[in-house]
Amino acid sequence: MSQQDNPVTQMKWMIYGANGYTGELIAREAVKRGLRPVLAGRSRDRIETLARELGLEARVFGLDDEARLLAQIKGHGLVLHCAGPFSATAAPMMDACLRANAHYLDITGEIAVFEHAQSLQERAQAAGVVICPGVGFDVIPTDCVAAALKRALPDATHLALGFDSRSSFSPGTAKTSIEGMAQGGKIRRDGKIVSVALAYQVRRIDFGDGEKLAMTIPWGDVSTAWHTTGIPNIEVFIPGSAGMIRGARLANFIRPLLGLPFVQRLLKARIGKTVIGPDEEKRADQGTYVWGEARNARGECKVARVHTANVYSLTIYGALTVVDYLLQERPAGGTYTPARLMGVDLVTDLPGSGTLKVE
């Protein structure tokens, strides 16, 4: 049944940042599914060209003018925000959505954005608005793994999560990674997010494709997994060669330089000129292994694994699955993580996902 045929899904909704790599992919898939989002962003040429091609409404505006932003959001029941770096764009869009009574979704993986969203819980409840950042690869699969492990080991005190992906970066993801390197590592310890060195912990992990050397990264689950599970100690890992880990640890010595505004601008400008996201053929050939491990005070341990589609394909499917849910359902307002909003089976319901196994 198409959106036009179903009165429940007549809510007008918007993809902001549809001119970006992932935003455009989501827009194209939405149209294939019979959905009719409004396409919006700051790049007039790219937004209007894509909207004409897809037969959709286009809106062009930035996020720096609060009054104009609110006027553009009003009348929409939902915004899927795809314009990063979310450290700069998420807060004004969340505020506009709350004031316009529009649900807010995004595809961030940034810890600070997740924490800001949690600070808006009371406003979201009062407005009857759902705020759910991280409805892409950041952080649907790891959030569902965390929820499954909490269910399997309710008294867990320590949670480790991770993923093994061969996917190349999109320009937006690469720029966010440059910001993250300047900020250093992050883990959750005794319920608090604390700053640590890059590659703070190193261990060997079988993510699902054989045991590999792995290091900690400041992934979004340092925030979200705690809000999903209440487990107070959380670390997130990715595989890395010995050389990659040495490089990350050496970067700790130049982090103050990486944080300088002109260095950030220089690195991001280079990324904009040189980084191109993976094409459809590469995405189809780049599945991802997702892993998690929970331990309790008695030393009992549970391990979970699930194999998913490529990180960008999963982001497309995940974002539109949550959009479709909010077009048809009316959950209570508040700030959610993906697993809290839609349950632990969200990841396995997505195309390309296998069974989530807990051992």
Rank of each mutant, 00 (worst) to 15 (best):
N6D: 15
Q10H: 15
I15D: 03
T22A: 08
L25Y: 01
A27G: 05
R28C: 02
R28G: 01
G34N: 11
L35P: 02
V38I: 14
R46W: 00
E48L: 05
R52F: 01
A58H: 08
A58W: 09
F61Q: 01
G62Y: 02
D65I: 01
H76T: 08
H81S: 06
G84Q: 02
F86K: 02
A91F: 01
M93E: 03
M94R: 05
L105M: 07
G109R: 02
V113R: 01
H116L: 13
H116M: 12
A117E: 05
Q118N: 07
E122I: 07
A127P: 09
A127S: 13
G136W: 03
C144P: 12
A147H: 06
L159M: 10
G172N: 02
A174Y: 02
T176N: 07
M181R: 02
G185M: 09
I187S: 05
G191A: 10
K192N: 12
K192P: 01
L198Q: 11
L198D: 05
A199C: 14
A199L: 09
Q201G: 03
I205Y: 08
D206Y: 06
H227Q: 13
P232N: 08
I234E: 06
E235K: 06
S241C: 12
A242T: 15
A242H: 14
I245A: 13
I245Q: 14
A251I: 06
A251R: 06
V263F: 05
V263T: 04
R265A: 14
R265I: 01
L266W: 13
A269V: 00
R270L: 09
T274K: 08
I276V: 13
I276E: 10
I276W: 00
W291A: 10
N296D: 15
A297D: 14
G299C: 12
G299R: 10
V311R: 00
A319F: 06
V323H: 07
E329W: 01
G333M: 09
P338Q: 08
A339N: 08
D345W: 02
L350R: 03
P351V: 04
V358K: 04
V358P: 06
E359L: 07
